[in-house]
């Protein structure tokens, strides 16, 4: 694990990169990274995240600044700008049931090819997907999602990169941290090793490549 200034963290992400971002309606989203990606005018990103939050907030910042070409998300109802760009053909959006999205990311990080879920069977979601019957019940084969960069936000990060999360800001973050080729974390507090007890570490240090230094 290395500690990097925020500008260097975002500079690692090239135009056209595929990023998976933690957070749920901006709660638990690495906001400083969102701001810096916007400042560095990244383009053509593929974003995998629960949602695009709202204009000016969380992942919505990337949408506003036209950093995104393709979004894989479960919900865009709270962000009219995402809907506008989608209708105008400026971005493409793949809508995925939330429980399927988190499992596809988990599969990516856990070395699985995909998962079988009953969610979406018999609906528009099954279009083009393989259906597999197990003990008489039909499931959809939903394939794994991985990304070049995983961007997560923790409550605590220690000097080695162990992470712990706060309340509902945990959400996608621990799963997202498994699914990136390179994992970059921001944290509310950077603390000495040992402050986070082993039982309270949610994301173990070897997963985390970079901790963004306090500004």
């Amino acid at each position: 694990m290395k500690t990097v200034p925020i500008a260097d963290a975002a500079a690692m992400i090239p135009d056209g990169a595929r990023i998976v971002v933690g957070g749920f309606l901006s709660v638990g989203t690495p906001d400083r990274l969102m701001d810096e990606i916007v400042r560095q005018e990244k383009r053509d990103l593929t974003v995998i995240a629960n949602d695009t939050a709202r204009p000016g907030i969380g992942v919505g910042k990337l949408i506003d600044a036209k950093c995104v070409r393709h979004a894989i998300v479960s919900h865009i109802g709270t962000n009219p700008e995402t809907q506008r760009q989608m209708m105008a053909g400026e971005i493409t959006v793949e809508l995925v049931p939330q429980g399927t999205l988190i499992e596809r990311i988990r599969a990516g990080g856990y070395g699985l090819g995909g998962i079988l879920t009953p969610t979406g069977v018999g609906t528009l979601v099954e279009d083009g997907k393989q259906k597999i019957e197990v003990d008489g019940t039909p499931y959809l084969l939903e394939t794994a999602l991985k990304a070049d960069f995983a961007l997560v936000h923790a409550f605590l990060a220690d000097y080695l990169g162990n992470l712990a999360y706060a309340l509902t800001a945990r959400n996608y973050n621990p799963i997202v941290a498994m699914a990136g080729e390179t994992v970059i974390a921001t944290a509310e507090h950077i603390v000495p090793v040992g402050v986070i007890a082993p039982d309270h570490v949610i994301t173990p240090a070897p997963l985390v490549d970079y901790i963004v230094a306090n500004g």
Binding site: H75, I76, G77, T78, Q83, L95, P97, Q98, P118, T119
Partner: peptide
């Protein structure tokens, strides 16, 4: 209206 299904499909199914 195409807001995305969020968690509705998982709840209705499970």
């Amino acid at each position: 209206m195409v807001p995305g299904m969020g968690g509705a499909m998982d709840l209705a199914t499970g």
